[in-house]
């Protein structure tokens, strides 16, 4: 038996945290008319849902529902599915790093990013910051965390971004 999830509406505090994060990732406008709920657990998950399944979730406690776009702890961390939605809707580039084609396969195997393989990263990025990893077509292939700030993110010969989640996990985890 897989565990049923308890879904609920966001509290005002959670909504504020989420809205700040959506603004940071450049997708606040896109999410303005979208429905999101919290799936209880540790950590709490933020689920994008269609408006029509809201009442079903609150009534039946399904095993799975909607699209988990991220987790809420102290702040909001995007999931791979969230990264996919954000990357396709954002016009912002600040928290997105783009890698070259050679690095795509490595990321999909869960490998960290060498600075050499990053073709585009904002100089405003700080160390220890969450970033969405994009392939050359600007599609999200992973979520990572910076090990360096600014221009040092593209330095040669060093791992500069730790890969936290990658699209290859769909095969690894399911298998």
């Amino acid at each position: 038996m897989i565990e049923s999830l308890k879904f609920r509406e966001l509290t005002r505090e959670e909504l504020t945290t989420l809205n700040r994060a959506l603004d940071k990732w450049g997708v606040f406008e896109f999410f303005k008319d979208k429905a999101v709920v919290i799936a209880e657990g540790t950590p709490k998950k933020v689920c994008l849902i269609s408006a029509d399944i809201r009442h079903i979730l609150l009534k039946f406690e399904p095993e799975y529902a909607g699209l988990v776009i991220g987790e809420l702890q102290k702040g909001f961390a995007p999931s791979l599915q969230g990264a996919d939605v954000f990357a396709s809707k954002t016009k912002s580039t600040k928290y997105y790093v783009t890698v070259n084609e050679n690095a795509v396969q490595l990321v999909l195997y869960g490998r960290d990013l060498m600075g050499d393989s990053i073709t585009l990263a904002s100089e405003e990025l700080d160390e220890n910051q969450l970033v969405i990893i994009l392939n050359p077509r600007k599609e999200a292939i992973g979520v990572g965390r910076t090990r360096f700030a600014g221009k040092s993110i593209t330095q040669k010969g060093r791992i500069t971004v730790t890969t936290l989640a990658d699209a290859g996990s769909y095969l690894r985890d399911e298998g």
């Binding site: 038996m1 897989i2 049923s4 689920c47 994008l48 849902i49 269609s50 029509d52 399944i53 079903i56 979730l57 039946f60 399904p62 095993e63 799975y64 529902a65 909607g66 699209l67 988990v68 791979l80 599915q81 996919d84 939605v85 699209a167 769909y170 985890d173 399911e174």
Partner: peptide, 21 residues
Amino acid sequence: RARSMSFNLARCGVSNTCILQ
């Protein structure tokens, strides 16, 4: 099978579905 299905829904970006066991 429900767990396996949840991976496919996530991979395909489906947000209007819930799975009941």
